[in-house]
Design a protein around this nucleic acid. Structure first.
Lengths: 204, 204
DNA sequence: CCTCACTTTTACCAACTGGTCAAATGTTGA
DNA sequence: TCAACATTTGACCAGTTGGTAAAAGTGAGG
């Protein structure tokens, strides 16, 4: 199913162009709403040519998901148990907000997959993601127990970080409908989130 | 386009059955992923019979959206400028969490629509929703100015309430993948959100 | 019982969509 | 230059899907 490493220059170029186009089309229309023709047009290739590189629509989609999942979890992996609790958590929030701002299509792709029941990545969520989250939740719980941050349910803390940051990518049009199309929400959002998490976590 | 009020009992019954089935199917599969046949089967009717009541797939979808939008905004409308600030806001959070818990399909339907650019309700978001949010944001800003709650960007405060509460409906499978399938997240979520908003809003 | 409007179904269609195939065209290295 | 391989394309297909047409069934009031 998965091809061996692309070798020729042209393979590399086309594979990238296809995945870029697929990201654009899948994130804007969902899996079912995307057509192979749309992706082909956006990539500047013919439909059979796409299917020469990726055997099926499904293969493009799962290739995308796999490629993106790691990048999506990196900010949480970087949460350092040895660091200062509050700065570590604030830095994590900022990294997630950067991801939402710089990679909104990726965010929407995941959101869409999960809203529809995560049929293709549920297994990964239950294994890799759960392990990672449980591990980091334990770190946060330990910080609380040490009295270095205020006590808060660590799992729900992580959920709230995810939801508030990704909101600006996933619900982008709603945010702009309310704040105005030309208003960049990210500076204010960053300020808001820093204030919020500082107030709920800082001791005293 | 819109039919006059359904009059006969059978019209009423079938219209309800169709909208209920449509909600189920659209929220689970998205607009494009849903088929008229799926909805017909779930409603216990034949496909042409559905189209006798609703002229098109699109009509069912927009009928659903219209019907649901009001209910979705009610909790915010109920925010009372005359009430006590903190209890008012906490009550709003609780109402939104109730909606997420009791009407997850409705939440996912909206989320899906907005993620895909809100092609059918963008106008409403820019008019009705914006007006309502601006009005309530002004109320919150006024409370802050009076020194009755801590100062916080009121628009982003509202965004954070939406995102954190709806997260439990929209990303349901992810929450359960992490907390366990049999774990009911809502009691803990309610506790977490109450603590969070109390800490960021309460004076002193 | 009969009429007339309402409801339902059977049969069907045209457009779209994912995917195939064989032929044609490029490209590369000996 | 030429053989071998990689890439691209046009023509095509079968299944799905939204929607239509016309006939058949249903039921309430006269």
């Amino acid at each position: 199913m998965t091809k061996a490493q692309p070798q020729t220059r042209i393979q590399k170029k086309n594979t990238r162009a296809i995945l870029e186009a697929a990201l654009e089309v899948f994130s804007a229309n969902g899996y079912r709403g995307a057509t192979v023709d749309m992706i082909a047009t956006k990539a500047g290739l013919s439909k059979p040519n796409l299917l020469y590189y990726f055997g099926s629509k499904e293969a493009m989609y799962t290739a995308l998901l796999e490629e993106l999942l790691d990048a999506w979890l990196d900010p949480l992996r970087a949460l350092d148990a040895q660091g200062e609790p509050l700065p570590e958590l604030l830095a994590y929030v900022n990294r997630k907000l950067d991801l939402a701002r710089d990679f909104p299509r990726e965010s929407r792709l995941f959101a869409n997959e999960i809203i529809h029941g995560a049929p293709r990545i549920l297994a990964v969520l239950k294994s890799d993601l759960k392990v990672l989250v449980d591990e980091k939740a334990a770190v946060i719980a330990h910080w609380s127990a040490q009295g270095r941050i205020e006590c808060l349910d660590p799992h729900h803390l992580i959920f709230s970080i995810w939801s508030m940051t990704q909101h600006y990518a996933d619900f982008d049009v709603q945010v702009h409908a309310i704040l105005g199309a030309d208003h960049d929400p990210y500076p204010d959002a960053r300020q808001y989130l820093e204030t919020l998490f500082t107030r709920i976590l800082r001791k005293n």
